[in-house]
Design a protein around this nucleic acid. Sequence first.
DNA 1: CTATCCTTTTGCAGCGCTGCAAACAGGATG
DNA 2: CATCCTGTTTGCAGCGCTGCAAAAGGATAG
Lengths: 344, 344
Amino acid sequence: MRRGREVTLRDVAELAGVSSRTVSNVVNGYANVTEHTRRRVQEAVDQLGYRPNVLARNLARGRSGQIAVVVPYLDTPYFSELLQDIIRAARVQGYNVLIDQTDGDREHERMLINHGSSRLLFDGVIFSPLGLSQSALADRDPNLPLVVLGERVSDGTFDHVGIDDVEASRHATEHLLDLGRRRVAAIGDQPYETGEAAQLRTRGFREAHERRGLPVHEDLIIGRPRFNRADGAEAMAFLLDRDDPPDAVFCYSDLVALGAIHTLISRGMRVPEDVAVIGYDDIEDGRYSNPTVTTISPDKGMIAATAVERLLLRIGSTAPPPGLELRAPHRLIVRESTAGRVSG
Amino acid sequence: MRRGREVTLRDVAELAGVSSRTVSNVVNGYANVTEHTRRRVQEAVDQLGYRPNVLARNLARGRSGQIAVVVPYLDTPYFSELLQDIIRAARVQGYNVLIDQTDGDREHERMLINHGSSRLLFDGVIFSPLGLSQSALADRDPNLPLVVLGERVSDGTFDHVGIDDVEASRHATEHLLDLGRRRVAAIGDQPYETGEAAQLRTRGFREAHERRGLPVHEDLIIGRPRFNRADGAEAMAFLLDRDDPPDAVFCYSDLVALGAIHTLISRGMRVPEDVAVIGYDDIEDGRYSNPTVTTISPDKGMIAATAVERLLLRIGSTAPPPGLELRAPHRLIVRESTAGRVSG
DNA sequence: CTATCCTTTTGCAGCGCTGCAAACAGGATG
DNA sequence: CATCCTGTTTGCAGCGCTGCAAAAGGATAG
């Protein structure tokens, strides 16, 4: 243990000739300190190179100054892009971010929304669940401030931040229909228990058909347990092996879209000429892939900022505020996978 | 502040009829506790639902139980994939991971390897620097355990974990030469001050030519400040605008390769027929792109495990161990971007 | 039956900070 | 000149845990 007798508040106080409490006040920027005292203390701080011991501070304050962000998979681009924004937003507020990945494990998810195995490691959680079931949410520690992203609409005890999945999916599907495609598939549907968001997207998919007065091809709605490349590639292969393959696909994530495109290309089909593909999330990969991927782009910066803001509000208040349903904006970004190559 | 009078060690002690110190011993699994006592205490723990307060524990122990992992950009797939493995490895050892991104900012990097602005937030740092200069490393806090990944070979005061960049790059280049390519470009060279790893890769590039008795085309070595898609795309465009473009490209990262491929395809060229492309890092994107990307695959799991292991060793020892240079294995993975499509 | 040794348990101090409330100015007011 | 007030500074207790060293048992030996 490298404990070289670090500089403490008391040391500074002694040098500056004031009480340690006053030094604390200066360091924390509290009001009601005369300019004269402040300067004296500041000099002593600089001279000794004092740096507060966060552990002690947090213990005394009764909070850890950290929030946990829980995602299923860290290497999923959507999550890492979002994470980046969350870390920035938290840092501005003086909060550190602890990252946890659940690998989609239900039990792990459940443990984390109950403060993990120890107290005070983090003051609140931003949770992007994969298979978070209703029951897990039900018996969670109600005192742990929680903000949920993406899946699972709020039950009133926590905030939920996301885009309007139904509307976004309707836009995506309408885009395909408006290109003249009539056999549009959907890849990514899930049962309610694990995928509320997926269900909302399927609903948007249906609404688009309704609005255009066109029939939904029920057999082209493909369920998928995860939203990754492998799932997209497999589902696409499954669709192509049918008698009557689709001429367009609405994928519930960009990764699924990239996987689907991979299958299409390797089977010698052209995207978008033979099959148009649209994704969801607007991850960077889709901007450089061949072809580039048309997608629904959620405002990630807004989602991150809103999530952090709401979480800190919860952490700071005695009586928990009501659970809100918060919507970030989204845009449809048209790229080659539906519009074709613009120039040679 | 939601301080609902949490269960403490003392509460458990009272219920179990022992001293709080004994409860602590049981909770921490120390030896020398009779089975009888252990059971009694455990029952009390379960009954009250006691969970240790990590903050208090860490303060008393004088360490935070957290390590910081510092990367330039979190949304770079290579880093997020590596991070995933680091988090797993750390968790096994009871350590939490605090993540920080520097956005490549030198000042930020310097601050972090000096413990940030406060003490005891983390016990050690795993650092994947981008532009970490020699001087920043020189005046760092020598008491903060440090393990560096990728860039910048150890100066003896910290450990460095990585693959053998020279050898790996030689393999990559030899692969291209052995395919019969004779105008091989390299994208990603950097000056020493910011890119020691880049220089090693360039050296490997040269060595490959030497070994095959072929001349290096110096004008085909393209410097790039970063290793992302945009840089790869631009550099490729620059190369194609030349009178005598290359017939193969060794890219210093998979992202660069994906960017380069993007430019090639959008200009109507065929990969690998017209230009073969090889990357570096083996990120997931390259396994599903069109074409899939031949690459150097570093053993990320091994790198992560080694880094965590060495760091914890440093944290745990009074006298800092000597700074080691540690090598993880790597493999050449041949895919479509050099070998062409295998089947229709 | 006492001395010795080892194992198990205990008590206390203290990690370094902040919350709280009291103490202490130094004016303004009557 | 006493009283009240506002703004500033201080002292103390304590956050919940662990390190340390001493105390208490229990077993074994003399």
